[in-house]
Write a protein that binds this DNA or RNA. Structure first.
Lengths: 105, 105
DNA sequence: CCATATTCTAGACAATGTCTAACAAACATC
DNA sequence: GATGTTTGTTAGACATTGTCTAGAATATGG
């Protein structure tokens, strides 16, 4: 089963799309989910997701920024999408009909 | 932050409504979420949720069944509902626009 | 080359997920 | 009214996930 953070990270990788490496994923989570995590937390989670075959990584080009090492970019695998969909489906089914978490804001 | 199972258990308690003790909660999760957990897992999670003030329990009447000890019935507190709503909102926001399965039915 | 900025890795520890085994209390019955 | 059977709960152990800090690697600019 996917943990809560794993779900969020998978979603963030999907949202970022191309060049989804640590920093953009971290920023997406910070902005969208309002969750203040360290980069280390993101990397650890991405590593674990990769071990489980739910994402795949490849080394990318260095950013054109000031400095820094090569980026490691992630893509969600088919298995990752299936796993994520399954988790979200369970929540949707469990929440269906209850007026919890369905209110906008 | 709520773990994945914690969210599911909270939702199950809400679904069951009156007399939400271990067994019905377990059954609801089994049926609705298709997840095969032991009763021990449910109880442990309920205990932890109570320690965090997200559910409240009271000892209920014994079932009129064959035998059995008194039931401990759970209710989701206001804090529990808030916490749950917050978690689900994050997921909804993260999933919004992606074709991955948390969009309203 | 050396300093510095950026990204990634590793190791530690806390919280959550999960099971098995054991304990407790009601009922039926004899 | 002792006792065994049934149903429900608790406790303890271990695996997985969540999270941080500290440090290593690799670019670029002077």
């Amino acid at each position: 089963m996917l943990g809560e953070l794993e779900q969020i990270v998978l979603l963030a990788v999907l949202r970022v799309g191309r060049d989804a490496y640590g920093v953009p994923v971290h920023d997406e989570i910070q902005t969208r989910a309002g969750r203040d995590l360290t980069l280390g937390t993101i990397y650890k989670t991405l590593n674990r997701l990769e071990e489980k075959g739910l994402v795949l990584s490849h080394v990318g080009e260095p950013t054109a920024e000031r400095g820094g090492r090569r980026t490691r970019c992630y893509v969600v695998t088919a298995a990752g999408k299936r796993s994520l969909a399954a988790s979200l489906k369970v929540l949707r089914r469990m929440a269906a009909g209850l007026d919890v978490g369905l209110e906008p804001t």
